[in-house]
């Protein structure tokens, strides 16, 4: 990590009071610049994130993870970030993998680095979820021209260039596909890095329902028609 680099960690959170303090504390041990976007939680997510050392931005109304990410990314850019890491609040990501993303970006000079559980490891991934994720990979490759091994991983690194170019407009879970679509459309250089996803009872309960795939498809379809 060079002295010129300003690495910001963006963590979108909604009702994550149970784990957010630990997540932020673990990240902050290595990376001090953290912004948690509290997406109008009904619990003390914001207060706990702040007490753990994060800057907290709070949406007055619930908008979705995509919207929270874009808010956090914009804040990080305004603070002078050179590298932005998106990191989930539910504890399924490992802090050690942030360094893996950074080293991969350094080696490949990619504009964006996607974490991939299928290049790394996913502990106890349910079989049906694995199948749906693989299907998402094929769908994303077909629609965006960008072939990844893991198309729905919240752990990613964006350089300042990529963060400024990609403007997330999908408020909810279709943002993951939108980001990949924009990488293809804008011809950004991308790479993948092996990461570990830790499936716990808590993270599985917080993860998006597989039936959301239908909602994601509908949102992407309408967005494509709309100018």
């Amino acid at each position: 990590m060079s002295s010129e680099q300003q690495i910001w960690i963006v963590i979108p959170g909604f009702n994550e009071a149970e784990v957010i303090h630990d997540v932020v504390a673990r990240v902050r041990a290595l990376y001090p610049r953290i912004v948690v976007v509290d997406d109008c939680s009904q619990d003390v997510t914001g207060e706990r994130a702040r007490s753990a050392g994060a800057t907290v931005l709070r949406h007055p109304m619930n908008l979705g993870q995509g919207a929270a990410l874009q808010t956090g990314i914009r804040y990080a850019l305004e603070q002078g970030a050179t590298h932005i890491i998106t990191f989930d609040a539910d504890g399924q990501h490992r802090v050690e993998d942030i360094d893996v993303l950074l080293r991969t970006q350094q080696e490949t000079q990619a504009d964006i680095v996607f974490g991939s559980r299928f290049l790394g490891s996913a502990t106890d991934i349910p079989p049906f979820r694995r199948m749906v994720l693989k299907t998402a990979v094929e769908f994303t490759a077909l629609t965006s021209g960008v072939r990844l091994t893991d198309a729905h991983n919240g752990l990613r690194l964006l350089t300042r260039r990529a963060a400024e170019a990609i403007r997330i407009r999908q408020n909810r879970m279709a943002h993951a596909s939108e980001i990949i679509g924009k990488v293809g459309a804008l011809r950004l250089r991308f790479a993948e890095a092996p990461v570990t996803i830790v499936y716990t009872k808590y993270s599985l309960s917080k993860g998006q329902k597989l039936s959301n795939a239908i909602n994601i498809l509908a949102e992407l379809f309408v967005a494509r028609l709309h100018r």
């Binding site: 504390a25 702040r50 007490s51 753990a52 800057t55 931005l57 919207a67 808010t71 914009r74």
Partner: peptide, 19 residues
């Protein structure tokens, strides 16, 4: 909503160090 959130950042609580 984004503008409102960005205009009111709540900085880290320095009286309660992480950990």
């Amino acid at each position: 909503n984004r503008e409102l959130a960005l205009r009111n950042p709540r900085l880290p609580d320095r009286t309660n160090p992480a950990g």
